[in-house]
Design a protein around this nucleic acid. Structure first.
Lengths: 347, 347
DNA sequence: GTTAGCACTCATTTCGTTAGAGTGCTAACA
DNA sequence: TGTTAGCACTCTAACGAAATGAGTGCTAAC
């Protein structure tokens, strides 16, 4: 029974899905019969539809209603039927991203653009900089009892933190500390700078160990960003209201909360990062989604890179009947666009 | 006709408002008649209600429905009736804010807490640091063609930016620039560091004017944050779904969008900042709101300070029938709590 | 001034009916 | 054997009439 569908069945399935994508209503045999390409009577369509139902590609909400695609149906569409068409469509709207210095702004804008272009909800995660190497550390005195630690990574991400001291620290000590930190840490991958490493440095610092310990701890904290701190921008969440199948109160509440809280979105990002095998774009349909809340949606994600192992995730969340072609195309162009922007200068 | 209401009318109005706050349904004379405190028959109540309707404190959605408070009614409640009760209620839930170093985290958490405590939507703006003074600037070389500018303000807010150079810059020049910047700018209020000032500095720099100009511009940009950049955290937007009068699709969409876009929330913050006269907490009922989108809501805002003229705004947005006492109390305690945290150490 | 009583209004609910979309099956046709 | 026309059947959505009931306003009596 898991044999490949014959051509006609595929064409009918495709017609059903396309129609359902537009209308959001169950589609009946007569509608498909009038569908341009195929000249088959509704009765024949009915027979085929009956088969497709048995095979699990479409379902009937109730007797005497039309059919709607099942997850399995969408899956086939995304894997096979859609690709056939891909070359035909093309013609992408151009994504005009302002060239601005601030990565943050670019990303916010990208999310917004994507939302406007697709009419779905979008998210984009700020790249994590694990894997990147440390380029430069500098401690500077700001006032008597405060120094500021500035950490620059190879990919030009900057972190900083004010360190409050118990006792004053003379300029010479600060200079020494700077030297110590830079000679020992520069060029090291961020994740190698762990507690053990810091402990060894503390020993080397020797004399001033008291104050130095404070400073080193602070530096370590500065370098290591909390997992929790994963930043995510979202846009177009209210687009979800456009789709009746998602906009009843309880579903909408759950979804919008997910977008506001962002914690669940972070799971999407993690899922994406751990999935190394991939060409770049991943489609989750319904239950396939790594996020429980989105089991009535489809989620399409892409990763973008900006060198040195910094990867971010873009996600589009919409109804299962989302326009997969358009979404995938948009993601592809956005990926290219982001590469162009971030390939040159960062932040 | 604008005479003060007699005591009984006030008590009845208060009873109507309190009841409506709980139920969200128009309240009838019989309901009020059974209301504990007052022993008056429903017929009498009807007469009084008729008067209150004429005076504009309550309205009738349609003949043969109960009454609901008008904006004017709520206003009276907030200004007079509520205060009477305030002392009775008190007993605030304690707001437990984790003591963390990151201002950002504290604020996010505060918004969330407030949302959970009140069941309304909340926002909190990251304090702008206009008015603060410059404490320290440091340029450091990061690589051959890059230097990083770190700017620290008196309130310990740190900004930084990578500056890409056209030509190499020797250590001595960087040292000189550091000196130049610090001697000229330290202690100056941020807003005084404008283009004119920068132009003068450029002249002083003399020889290397080419490169120096780039650097100075970058520093200026670093210091001056866009008005647009006002950061706002929100929480509990989906709480708005709890109130039927706000959760029909079009209203909900508009409101949730407002919270996502944040631009409109920024108007709230601005309104708040320009309003100097105030004791701290402001209640906008319905049309009084500075934000058009929220004309069906009530908005309660408070400002919190963290020294050096840095002020942020907290806002609670809910239905007109919000529990004003509780909201105001919560805001008051949160203000105190934020003062406690930020009074000592920042960011 | 307060209250009981009553007629009246109007939104909401209920329930039966209808209309229509769509199916499944059978029988005929190529 | 695959395709099609035709028809009975199913089930939802839409409609409308009637019942319900909450609430008012007014009048008359206390």
């Amino acid at each position: 029974m898991e044999e490949a569908l014959n051509d006609r069945k595929k064409r009918i399935l495709k017609a059903i899905i396309k129609t359902y994508m537009e209308t959001g209503e169950p589609v009946g045999s007569r509608t498909i019969s009038k569908y341009t390409d195929l000249n088959i009577s509704s009765a024949t369509i009915r027979n085929e539809m009956s088969d497709l139902t048995d095979l699990g590609y479409i379902v009937q909400p109730h007797t005497s209603a039309g059919r709607i695609p099942s997850d399995k149906g969408y899956r086939l569409y995304v894997d096979e039927l859609m690709k056939e068409k891909e070359s035909e469509v093309a013609e992408l709207r151009e994504l005009v991203l302002e060239k601005t210095d601030k990565m943050e702004k670019v990303l916010k804008q990208a999310a917004k653009l994507l939302a406007v272009n697709t009419n779905y909800a979008t998210m984009i995660s700020v790249p994590q900089y694990s894997g990147s190497r440390l380029k430069f550390i500098q401690l500077s005195r700001v006032s008597d009892l405060q120094i500021v630690a500035v950490v620059v990574c190879e990919n030009n991400v900057i972190r900083n933190q004010i360190i409050n001291l118990e006792d004053e620290m003379d300029d010479e000590t600060i200079l020494k500390l700077n030297l110590l930190l830079n000679t020992n840490l520069n060029g090291l991958p961020i994740q190698d700078i762990n507690l053990g490493m810091i402990a060894r440095l503390k020993e080397q610092a020797g004399i001033h160990s008291g104050v130095v310990a404070t400073v080193l701890d602070a530096v370590a904290a500065t370098i290591h960003v909390d997992e929790e701190d994963l930043e995510i921008y979202t846009s177009g969440t209210t687009n979800l209201f456009r789709y009746p199948e998602l906009s009843d109160k309880s579903k909408a509440t759950e979804l919008i909360s997910a977008f506001e809280e962002k914690r669940q979105l972070a799971d999407l990002v993690k899922e994406r990062l751990s999935d190394t095998s991939n060409t770049g774009i991943q489609v989750y349909i319904g239950d396939e989604s790594p996020v429980e809340t989105m089991k009535d949606c489809s989620v399409v994600t892409a990763t973008y890179e900006l060198g040195e192992g910094m990867t971010g995730t873009i996600g589009i969340i919409g109804p299962k009947r989302m326009d997969y072609e358009n979404v995938v195309d948009n993601l592809k162009t956005l990926k290219v666009e982001l590469d162009k922007i971030f390939g040159k200068k960062l932040e």
